[in-house]
Amino acid sequence: MSRTAPAGGRETGSPSWRPTPLVRASFWLHGGAGCGLWLAPQLWPWWLGSVAANHAVLAAAGMAPRSALLGPNLARLPPGSRQVALSFDDGPDPEVTPRVLDLLDEAGARASFFLIGQRAARHPALVREILRRGHSAENHTHTHPLHFAALGPGGMRREVREAQAAIGAAGGAPRFFRPPAGMRSPFLDPILFTAGLRLANWSRRGADGVSGNAARVLRRLRDPQPGEILLLHDGNSRRGADRRPVVLAVLPELLARLRAAGLSAASLPQAVAASDVAPPASAAAAESLPSAADASP
């Protein structure tokens, strides 16, 4: 399957979207099972079983945050990078995000903030402050539905489009998208292609959204390596025994470890070569994304 993106997302004449080998094989398998059911209906358990097995494989691929089986997925920086990309999810948070920004400033570090659209709409000045300090504001859906991977193409498209518009209204122009928990379905890749967004997950996460133990979070991020994309949270960071969001205890030590390893912390647009980054989709482009009735992959 190949589809040219409409004007307003990627420009007319740009390469058309192409499914991965797994998705392409799934299309053929579904078609073959349909023909088999028509030609030999008595073998329906086999046809049904083959489709069910294929759906299980697709679901497993979608639940693996670093998998590229469903489409391009930036889980590490390009080879040769001497940087680490820091990323923070679920903000902006009026209590935590300014303190995270201060800690990054003190270390001369830059990061990418994957923002929830609704929160960006409530705190546009905080989004502008993220950008003013040299960081990037990226797309993390509009409402952060934990069942995002189970949404159909219309629901996914709406979450992407509305977050892009909300962050754009605050001055941002996201180039990267991260789904909640990193999970997605085969519907997501053509939607991101149309929006001019690139899927970016992580190589390691601190799990500070579930653990308030700073030592445990730091153990998960120990020995940072060049090219890694590290995930923490400025929104929904679990609080430690001192009632402080654990990210505020973890970040200074993590930044010190990066310095000791001779690594610099960068945002994704900084860390990825300019020629390797998809062009930004503006709020206007996001509004032009096709509706749920259009072109399900």
Score class of each variant (00 low, 15 high):
residue 230 L to G: 01
residue 82 R to H: 13
residue 100 V to E: 07
residue 48 L to V: 15
residue 235 G to Q: 02
residue 138 E to V: 06
residue 99 R to A: 14
residue 290 P to N: 01
residue 115 L to H: 01
residue 193 F to K: 02
residue 259 R to I: 07
residue 88 F to A: 06
residue 245 P to N: 12
residue 108 G to W: 13
residue 126 L to N: 01
residue 252 P to W: 09
residue 86 L to P: 02
residue 58 L to T: 10
residue 175 R to N: 09
residue 163 A to M: 11
residue 283 A to F: 11
residue 112 S to V: 08
residue 223 D to K: 00
residue 154 G to Y: 07
residue 46 W to A: 15
residue 205 R to M: 06
residue 155 G to Y: 08
residue 251 L to Y: 06
residue 197 L to C: 00
residue 9 G to V: 08
residue 115 L to F: 04
residue 97 T to S: 14
residue 151 L to E: 08
residue 155 G to N: 11
residue 13 G to M: 12
residue 72 P to R: 15
residue 10 R to V: 06
residue 112 S to Q: 10
residue 129 E to T: 07
residue 172 G to W: 11
residue 247 V to K: 02
residue 152 G to D: 15
residue 105 D to E: 15
residue 272 V to E: 02
residue 17 W to S: 08
residue 291 S to H: 14
residue 89 D to A: 10
residue 156 M to V: 10
residue 75 A to K: 04
residue 118 Q to F: 01
residue 270 Q to W: 12
residue 190 P to Y: 06
residue 69 L to M: 04
residue 107 A to Y: 10
residue 296 S to E: 14
residue 167 I to P: 12
residue 99 R to I: 00
residue 159 E to Q: 15
residue 59 A to H: 07
residue 195 A to H: 01
residue 251 L to E: 11
residue 175 R to P: 08
residue 4 T to E: 14
residue 131 L to F: 13
residue 219 R to V: 05
residue 188 L to W: 03
residue 150 A to G: 04
residue 279 P to E: 00
residue 271 A to S: 14
residue 121 A to C: 05
residue 152 G to E: 10
residue 179 P to N: 12
residue 81 S to H: 07
residue 95 E to K: 12
residue 9 G to Y: 08
residue 191 I to E: 02
residue 78 P to W: 09
residue 217 V to L: 00
residue 56 A to D: 05
residue 53 A to H: 00
residue 131 L to E: 05
residue 101 L to F: 12
residue 160 V to E: 06
